[in-house]
Amino acid sequence: MPGFRRAAVVVLACIAPLAACKRQPERGADPIEKVTHERGLVSVAELPPCLDRPEPGPGWTSADVGPFSLRLPRGYRKVQVQGIDSFMGEYRAPGRALHFDYGPYSSTLQEWRSAGAGFRSCRMEIGGHLAKIVTARSEKEGYLAGVTWRELENGDEAGALHLTMIATTADVAGQREALAVFRSVRFKKMEWPSP
């Protein structure tokens, strides 16, 4: 009987963090569940990225990117990139890269379903807007983390404007760090940035 009690305690300990989850089916054709959770979990490897809620660490700096701001760990440097039909930017640190695309044609991250192993997806509110967060692993690019906000504002004749961020890292710690960067995004009054 003591062995049964020990097994029951282990099962309850594993299920307890998920008890605070509220799941709602998404609207539209995307069958991904919306997941909100009140507590952070230790591992991002096997759970939807919304269940793990890392926060920016001490010493992180703020970056004003125009229509939004975000916080980055020390060591990230801005890299100049040029978009054709959208506002793009990139930040790099050793073993890590963060790219963003703000415009009418930014990725929905649907292509990640076949990109590699460990695909996880969920939705949560970040910066006052619903965001889709995706994590995966790829033999070529390592650990991936992405977030996209759809229809943030109406653009010109091209249609609504969206923001997508993609992070590539060498390890799961970098993937978790990217999730904290995503959660730090705050939107300003939406204006198309000047070139």
Rank of each mutant, 00 (worst) to 15 (best):
L70S: 06
H99I: 12
H37F: 00
G128E: 06
L152V: 09
I15Y: 01
E33L: 14
A145C: 08
T36A: 10
K132H: 10
E141M: 08
L109K: 04
L161M: 15
R176I: 04
E33M: 13
P67M: 13
K188R: 11
P73Y: 00
E157V: 09
L163Y: 06
L179M: 09
P54M: 08
H99C: 09
K22S: 09
S114A: 08
L130E: 15
R23P: 02
D156V: 03
E90N: 12
K22M: 09
S43E: 10
S184M: 06
P48T: 06
F182P: 11
S194G: 03
V172L: 13
Q175I: 00
Q24C: 03
I126W: 02
P193N: 05
R27A: 12
T148I: 15
G83L: 11
G3M: 13
S106A: 15
Q175G: 01
V81E: 10
D156W: 03
A117K: 05
A158K: 12
F119M: 04
G75C: 07
V81S: 05
A13M: 12
A8W: 04
C122N: 05
E191W: 01
C21V: 08
G59R: 09
R74W: 09
K34F: 07
A93Q: 05
G155D: 09
E55Q: 14
G159D: 11
S114T: 08
A115T: 03
G174S: 06
W149V: 14
A97R: 14
A16P: 04
G142T: 07
F87Q: 11
T148C: 11
D101C: 08
L41W: 00
V35W: 00
P67T: 11
A93H: 04
F87H: 15
D85M: 14
F187R: 04
V42M: 14
G66P: 12
P31L: 07
V35Y: 00
T36Q: 12
T169L: 02
E26I: 00
R176W: 01
C122L: 07
V172P: 11
Y143G: 06
D64M: 02
T108N: 15
H162V: 10
V44F: 00
G118P: 02
T168D: 11
V147E: 11
R77Q: 15
I32K: 04
Q110T: 12
T108R: 15
M190I: 14
L70N: 07
L109V: 06
A29Q: 08
A167M: 13
G95N: 04
G59H: 09
A16S: 12
R53I: 08
E46G: 02
Y76P: 12
I133T: 08
P2L: 15
G116V: 00
A20R: 13
W112C: 05
L130Q: 14
A115L: 13
K22A: 11
M190R: 10
E153W: 10
L12H: 00
G174F: 01
L41S: 01
V81D: 02
G146N: 10
A97G: 07
E26P: 00
G3I: 10
M88P: 06
R92T: 10
G127I: 03
I126K: 08
V42N: 13
S121D: 08
E46A: 04
W60M: 06
K140W: 02
D156N: 12
R6V: 09
